[in-house]
């Protein structure tokens, strides 16, 4: 990949956003970041990864946290900031990558290297996928989806002016149920290639 690209994928829980991201990363031969961010931060700062996972993509507790001159005691926000710093460093190094979640659409907003996508899905499709992946009942899957989406939404909206899933904040919002995971990934790959070609021709 000659030109640097940063592919930020927001996703509903169970929509297959992870797989779409992995496929795009594989297609372009670039790094895919999701849990790996936490692994790298845990190693660098000598922290137990389980601790980071507990606070990953969580919203701060309003009653139990305070902000003083840019310093916060909210571990959720500190973990988020650690990840933002990690992603900024990766971007500054010139590396191309796919990042799932972590408010990356907001972090790199306005940057011409950014390709911001949001993957959603029909609820039945998401329930089926989650129930199969986690080996749980459909009712449990529906509860899990609602819980995770609520948490992601709050986390995103805490760090971003543009709301989670609002089409105005993304280049493409796509329902993965319509085309399936593979075709959705191909659609987005094509979008990236076309936009890169268009950017090149504009110069």
């Amino acid at each position: 990949m000659k030109k640097q690209i940063i592919v930020a994928i927001g996703r509903e829980f169970g929509s297959g956003g992870h797989y779409v991201g992995q496929k795009i990363a594989k297609h372009f031969g670039i790094n895919y970041y999701d849990r790996k961010i936490l692994e790298d931060i845990a190693e660098e700062k000598n922290i137990q990864i389980e601790y980071l996972e507990k606070y990953d993509e969580q919203k701060r507790n309003m009653l139990f946290s305070r902000n003083v001159k840019g310093y916060t005691n909210s571990i959720e926000e500190i973990v988020a900031e650690m990840q933002f710093e990690y992603l900024r460093k990766k971007a500054d190094s010139g590396e191309s990558f796919v990042i799932v979640g972590r408010c990356a659409d907001e972090l790199f907003r306005g940057d011409e290297r950014l390709f911001a996508f949001f993957v959603l899905g029909d609820i039945e499709d998401k329930i089926q996928r989650v129930s199969k992946r986690h080996n749980i009942s459909k009712e449990e899957a529906a509860t899990k989806i609602a819980r995770h989406d609520k948490s992601r939404k709050k986390y995103h909206n805490r760090h971003s002016e543009i709301k989670w899933g609002d089409s105005r904040g993304y280049d493409v919002c796509v329902n993965s149920t319509r085309l399936g995971i593979d075709k959705t990934a191909e659609l987005l790959e094509k979008f990236i290639e076309d936009r890169l070609a268009w950017q090149e021709s504009e110069k």
Partner: peptide
Amino acid sequence: PIGASANVVGTSVASRN
């Protein structure tokens, strides 16, 4: 941890590291 500004700043510096 939220009772005084020093608490917030101190815990934040530690946590960031």
